[in-house]
Amino acid sequence: MSDPADPEAAPLSATHPDQPRDFVAPGADRDFAGERLTVDPAGARALLDARLIAAHAAGDTARLVTLYAEAGDSSEAAGDAAAAAFYRTHAYVFALQSGDSRAEELHRWLLREGREE
């Protein structure tokens, strides 16, 4: 979800204070402890899916926002705009539900893409 006009802007999913400590930003090659990551893309995706399922089961909306935003960022990085919109829609919904300030930025992105009002 980086602003294309601002190459320094970090992905939304990597900047929020609700960020879980085990979070791995899309495209990152190091984790928070600075360890080099060796997870392959398919493995990362499976890990994300598992986290999403766990967050749904726990009703942890803050984490759902983070993880869906991450999925949106990954999809965007992979050039899949439709998937990015899908995941960011979910992130937006759970941000609305939980009063998460990321709702506004997600809304702006969806609006810019012609997918929201």
């Binding site: 439709a82 919109a85 829609t89 979910h90 937006y92 997918r115 929201e116 009002e117």
Partner: peptide, 12 residues
């Protein structure tokens, strides 16, 4: 919001 009401990822 009305998620996916216009198809996947389209909320309008």
């Amino acid at each position: 919001t009305t998620p996916h009401v216009g198809g996947p990822g389209t909320n309008r």
